[in-house]
Design a protein around this nucleic acid. Sequence first.
DNA 1: ACACCCTCCTGGAGGC
DNA 2: TGCCTCCAGGAGGGTG
Length: 279
Amino acid sequence: MPELPEVETIVRLLRGQLAGQCLSRVEVRWPRCIACPSVAEFGRELLGREVLDVGRRGKFVILSLSGHKSLLVHLRMTGRLIVEDVGHLAANGGVAPDPYTHVSFRFTSGKALRFRDTRKFGRLYLVSEAAEIVGGLGPEPLSPGFTPQVLQDLLSRHRRRLKPLLMDQRMLAGLGNIYVDEALWEARIHPLRHAHTLSPEEVVRLHTAIRNVLARAIRNQGTTLRDYRTPLDEAGENQEALAVYGRQGKPCLRCGELILREAVGGRGTWYCPSCQRRE
DNA sequence: ACACCCTCCTGGAGGC
DNA sequence: TGCCTCCAGGAGGGTG
């Protein structure tokens, strides 16, 4: 499931591959993945536009296009963006007969970008202003502006349990199930602690842990547990660096106590009952 | 304000 | 082996 580090890895690769490319053809095979506008308008509006840049906000991939349009992609669980070089002469437009490829973009250079998603949760948005879609997101955890004080302010405004709060994109943008568990483990804080009860020291630890966990995962090109791959079909390596996620019954890497798994808000949650005390 | 439930989807896992 | 049921999981919606 792509979270911030996976999306960042995808974005860095796409930027090099797609910047300067001009769209010559768009094929939508599963209309419901186009969140807005209509499928007809989506295809019509994209043709002829150039990719000026590729960026990210939270878990959204943002392609900035000429003529003041932005194409946003949210990959949700199993969505992938795949770059292929189909060449100038491909008679069928290079369209792969793959039942999970829902949108194909063709560029004048012969390159293609595919949106592929087995579980069909991912969505594409074509808008004039990216803020129409990402305007409600919380701060970027790796931006310089995300200080311990900013986190303190966010936490003190809520009484919710930490796990669902940190996964709420309106609070903080980009964390998902894996990296919340990893950050809470590194900070030695129980996932069911209530946000406003953290001591200043714990807030600082959590702030450091969130940034460490995300930065390391980006260095490792993301976590490949099942579906995630880069646009060039490479697996990430951060699964080797996971300390708690998916490790129930195995010893804590810090203290040796056995890792527990518990459902929190319907989400699998892993933690060390010894290092991460509920108090 | 917060917890909880449902929906969307499908492959993979587990039970028998 | 094979069929069946269950389930994860991000986000948005609704309800209590």
